[in-house]
Design a protein around this nucleic acid. Structure first.
Lengths: 344, 344
DNA sequence: TTGAAAGCGCTAACAT
DNA sequence: ATGTTAGCGCTTTCAA
C-alpha cells in the first residue's frame, strides 16, 4: 500500500497519486470532477480513493481556495422556539447547498456579540446570518466583515446600517392586527407588555399597538404600555402592577410568546378568567399556545421560513458577490384562539 | 503602511512582520504569547496587530497545527426542546473553552447520519458529540473517526460499540418511577406509548414500564404497549385504538414530552377527563407541561446539563488524548403535576 | 530571544 | 489530458 502516508496519519491526495503513479494535481482535478480529466483516470482515482478511505481535508482546501464553505450563525439564544426553528431552517438549507454551519449564541449581550464577530472573522466564514441582541445599538463590530465584503444577512432583529439582505416580518402590522383583534372582541382597556424599545422589533410592535388604539379612538391609559426584557421577573412585575390597579386591563397584547404564556399562567393565580376578565394575545406563537386551555391567540412569526430565506439569500449573495440591500418580508398570521373571544 | 498585503486582502502575520522588520515566526510566537519572546517585542507586535486590524486566520492555523478547535455536533433535530437545550449547553461550554461548534441535524434518518459523519470527518473536527437517530443500529459510519482516534462523546441516544464517554439518564428508572407513580395514584389499566424499540432509550423505557407493572402484579393488557415513531400521526392512531377499546386505559406513560402533550389534547377531543378518566405522565418535560391545564406530570431529562457534560467530557478527552468508556449518569426528576392525581 | 526555512494538504496557474 | 510548481497563512523545527 501507499508508503508515503502523511504525517497526520490521514490519507491525502499524495497517497492516491503515488499509488497510481500520477500527479497530485491530477488526483485533485479528478476528485473535483474537472472536465479536463479523462473518464478513465477519474474512475481509477475514485476507486483508489475509496479503497484508501480518503476524505478530503476541507481545512487545506479552504486555505487554498480562500473559501471555507462555512456559514456563521449568530443568534441571541438557541433555546427560544423561534430561534431554534430559524437555526434548523438555516441548517437544512445550508446542508442542501454544501455549506457547514458554525453557531454561536450571544445571550442577548452586546458584549458577547462583539466577541463572537471576532471569532467568526477568524474562522473566515464565507457569510454570516445574524439576529441582533436586544441591547445592540452600534454595529461597529460588523465593520471588519463589511470591509472585507463578507456577506451578512440579518433576520428578525435587523439593523439597516449593515448592508445586505434583511429577512423580516412587519412587526407594526402584527401588533396592529393583534390589537385590532382585541378591540373587535370588545376590549376597551388594552395594555401592551413591550420588549426593549431601543430594539426596532419591539419599537414597531409598540407603535402598531398605539396606532390601533388611535384608529379606534381608544385611550392609551397610563401605565398600560410597559417596556421590559420580557423575562419571567419583568413579566411578573408588570402583571403585579396591572392587577393592583382599580381598573385592570381587559386585554393584553404581549410582545413575545413566552411572556404571553407566563401572563396567562400568572393571570390565573390572580383569579382572573381568560378571556372573560382578560383577553390575551401574543406576538409570536409557540406550540404551547395551541395546547393550553384556553388556547392562546397569537400572531405567528415564521421562524423556520425566515431561517430558510436567510440561508438562501446568503448563499446567493456569496455566489454572486453582489451584496444587495433587499428586504424580504415574510407573512405573519393571526391565529385566533380562545384567549380572545369574550363573546364566544 | 504595509505594502506586502496578502492576496486575499487580509492582514497576515507577514504584514506585521514587514511593518516591524522582524520575522513572521517571531510575530507568530509573540501573538501566541510564547515564553521565549521578549516583552518588548510582544508589546510592539500586539500594537501593530491592533493597528492593522489583524485577526488570526484559523484555517491556516488549523492546517498547520493539525487541530481545528472545532467540535462537531450531530443530533436528530434542533427543534425539539430537549436537543435545543442540549445544543445550547454544548455551545456555551465550547465557547468557554475556546472551541467553535459546527452543527448538523440528521432528521432521525440513518442515511443522513452516515452522510454527516463524512462531512464531520472532512471538516477535521477535533471531536464529536452525537445523539443517534432512532433508526441507527450499525455504527460502522463511526469507524473512520474511531480509527483516527477522534474523540466521540455520545449523549442520550448512545451506542456502546463506539468508544468514548457516554452521557445518559437511567431511562429504565425514569419509566419505572413514572409507572409506579401512576399505580400509586390508583391506575389499574396502564398503557405505554413507546418509541422505536430498537433504540435503547425507548427499549429501556418500555422495560421499566413492564417491570413496574410486574412488581405491582398488574397485567400488561394486550395492545397496551404500542411502539411507534412518536410523531403526531402515530400518536393519534395509538389514541384512536385505545379509545376504541371497551375497556380504555386509565393511565398512560408516554415515551416523549411532545407525544404526551398531544395525547392530553387528543384525550380532550374524545371527551376524556384528565386525570379523572385518564392519567398522563410523559418521559421528558417541556415548559408547556407546566402551563397546561391540567399541568402534565413528567420525568424531566436534563437536556442542558447533558449537553454541558458532553462538551466538558469531550474537551477533556481531546486534551488528554485518553478515550475512556466512562458513563456519566445524569439525575432525572419526577415532576408530579395535576395530570396524575386521581385522588386530589 | 530571534530568524530562516520547511511543511500542513490542497488548488491553480502555467507548461507540455 | 496530465505534470510541475508555487503558493494559501500559519506553526515549528533547526540554527544562530
Amino acid at each position: 500500500m501507499a508508503k508515503g502516508t502523511s504525517k497526520s496519519g490521514e490519507i491525502t491526495i499524495n497517497d492516491i497519486a503515488k499509488e497510481l503513479n500520477i500527479a497530485a494535481s491530477t488526483v485533485s482535478r479528478a476528485l473535483n470532477n474537472s472536465t479536463k480529466i479523462s473518464e478513465a483516470t477519474k474512475q481509477k482515482v475514485r476507486k483508489v480513493a475509496e479503497e484508501l478511505g480518503y476524505e478530503i481535508n476541507l481545512v487545506a482546501s479552504s486555505l487554498s481556495k480562500n473559501k471555507t464553505n462555512l456559514i456563521g450563525v449568530v443568534i441571541p439564544n438557541i433555546n427560544s422556539q423561534f430561534f431554534a426553528h430559524a437555526l434548523s431552517g438555516i441548517q437544512e438549507e445550508a446542508k442542501a447547498a454544501g455549506y457547514n454551519v458554525i453557531i454561536s449564541q450571544t445571550n442577548e449581550s452586546y458584549e458577547q456579540e462583539v466577541e463572537v464577530m471576532k471569532v467568526m472573522n477568524s474562522a473566515r466564514v464565507d457569510g454570516l446570518i445574524v439576529s441582533l441582541t436586544m441591547e445592540t445599538k452600534s454595529t461597529d463590530h460588523f465593520n471588519a466583515l463589511v470591509r472585507k465584503s463578507v456577506p451578512i444577512v440579518m433576520f428578525d432583529r435587523v439593523n439597516f446600517s449593515v448592508p445586505g439582505p434583511k429577512i423580516v416580518v412587519d412587526n407594526y402590522e402584527a401588533s396592529f392586527k393583534a390589537t385590532q383583534h382585541l378591540i373587535g372582541n370588545g376590549c376597551k382597556r388594552i395594555a401592551h407588555l413591550a420588549g426593549n424599545l431601543s430594539c426596532k422589533v419591539f419599537e414597531d410592535r409598540a407603535e402598531g399597538f398605539k396606532e390601533a388604539l388611535n384608529k379606534n379612538i381608544l385611550p392609551l391609559l397610563p401605565q398600560f404600555l410597559l417596556a421590559c426584557d420580557l423575562n419571567e421577573k419583568d413579566t411578573r412585575e408588570a402583571m403585579k402592577l396591572w392587577m393592583s390597579l382599580d381598573e385592570r386591563p381587559d386585554g393584553i397584547v404581549v410582545a413575545s410568546a413566552s411572556s404571553g404564556l407566563m401572563i396567562a399562567s400568572i393571570a390565573r393565580s390572580y383569579g382572573v378568567t381568560i378571556p372573560g376578565d382578560l383577553a390575551i394575545i401574543s406576538l409570536g406563537n409557540e406550540r404551547c399556545n395551541e395546547l393550553m386551555i384556553p388556547s392562546i391567540s397569537a400572531v405567528d412569526m415564521p421562524g423556520s421560513e425566515m431561517g430558510k430565506a436567510a440561508a438562501i439569500n446568503l448563499i446567493e449573495t456569496i455566489k454572486t458577490g453582489h451584496i444587495e440591500d433587499r428586504i424580504i418580508l415574510k407573512p405573519i398570521q393571526l391565529l385566533m384562539r380562545n384567549s380572545t373571544f369574550k363573546m364566544a
